[in-house]
Nucleic acid binder design. Structure first.
Length: 295
DNA sequence: AAGATTACCTGAAGGC
DNA sequence: TGCCTTCAGGTAATCT
């Protein structure tokens, strides 16, 4: 399941390998992923040069520009001034999307798109067809998508999150509050913060909120360094699985002993998602003794 | 009107 | 060449 760290690794590789290259070919095997239509996407980007790759939350934002290959707009990831013929493509991998370079094997029934960048071939494969490539008129994620979880500051995040009555897990998953956190890293962040997933956000004191914020960012930055988590079928830009799965402390570990205290990890449904937590390390309410220690 | 539920898809796993 | 149900969870649309 691609979340912020997995998408970040794809973005870094895309930027490294393909910026400055011209999109010379585009083969559509399943047009349902292309919005508003395969024809419109093709017309907008085919023959143009990839000049910028950005990421916001789980969204990839690609900018294409008219003309020959150029060095401009490259490594910093920001689009140069939009000229005539500039086009923006937003990619979301959703549940099972895979975007990878130079595949050895031939496209199979789940391969929906093949892009040729002046000799380099990129495939999009997506078993469940939830992913989307969407043409935009500006290099920005939709307005209802909040700031990236690694970009926002604590004060801003608290302003957006602290008044919510919903469970803190639901607030972490709400991409409008801050974007990038999915089910795996939400569970891992709450374990590391010692906060119960069902605790209402507006019931948490400042210290607990700060721990949730800090641990969410820390666990995702760590995952980026380990190439992301492959749980179902994520692959990086070179088609390789991520290494972070063995570092997961609670996700999909219900019934196993907690790595910190030995208590059996439990599983509950929160906001429609499976949520895994240690009932001892993540109490609903902090004990008076522990509260005293925090102060 | 924020929070909850369902639709979109396919494959894996488990019961019988 | 088994059939059926349930589950996985990101986002948009639809509910209450």
């Amino acid at each position: 399941v691609p979340e912020l760290p997995e998408v970040e690794n794809v973005a870094l590789a895309l930027r490294d390998c393909l910026t400055g290259r011209r999109l010379t070919g585009m083969t559509v095997l399943f047009g349902g992923i292309l919005e508003p239509s395969p024809r419109a996407v093709k017309r907008a980007i085919l023959g143009k040069t990839l000049v910028a790759v950005r990421r916001q939350g789980k969204y990839l934002l690609l900018t294409f520009a008219e003309g020959p290959d150029r060095e401009s707009g490259g490594r910093d990831g920001f689009a140069r001034d939009a000229g005539p013929g500039t086009a923006h493509l937003m990619i979301h991998l959703r549940m099972t999307g895979q975007l990878y370079l130079d595949p050895d094997r031939a496209p199979d029934k789940h391969t929906h798109l093949v892009l040729d960048f002046a000799g380099r071939r990129v495939c999009y494969r997506d078993i469940r067809k939830f992913g989307r490539f969407t043409l935009l008129d500006s290099p920005n994620a939709p307005v209802h998508v909040g700031p990236d979880m690694l970009e926002i500051g604590f004060a801003d995040w608290r302003d957006r999150a602290a008044r919510r009555r919903a469970p803190i897990k639901a607030v972490l998953l709400d991409q409008g509050v801050a974007s990038g956190v999915g089910n795996i890293y939400a569970d891992e962040a709450l374990f590391r913060a010692g906060v119960h997933p069902l605790a209402q956000a507006n019931s948490l004191d400042d210290a607990a909120l700060r721990r949730v914020f800090r641990e969410a960012r820390a666990v995702m930055r760590l995952a980026i360094r380990h190439g992301g988590t492959t749980y179902m079928n994520f692959v990086d830009f070179n088609g390789q699985p991520g290494n972070f799965r063995r570092k997961l402390r609670v996700y999909q570990r219900d019934g196993e002993p907690c790595s910190r205290c030995g208590t059996s990890i439990e599983r509950v449904k929160v906001a429609g998602r499976s949520s895994h937590f240690c009932p001892a390390c993540q109490p609903m309410t902090r004990s008076p003794r522990a509260r005293g220690r925090i102060r």
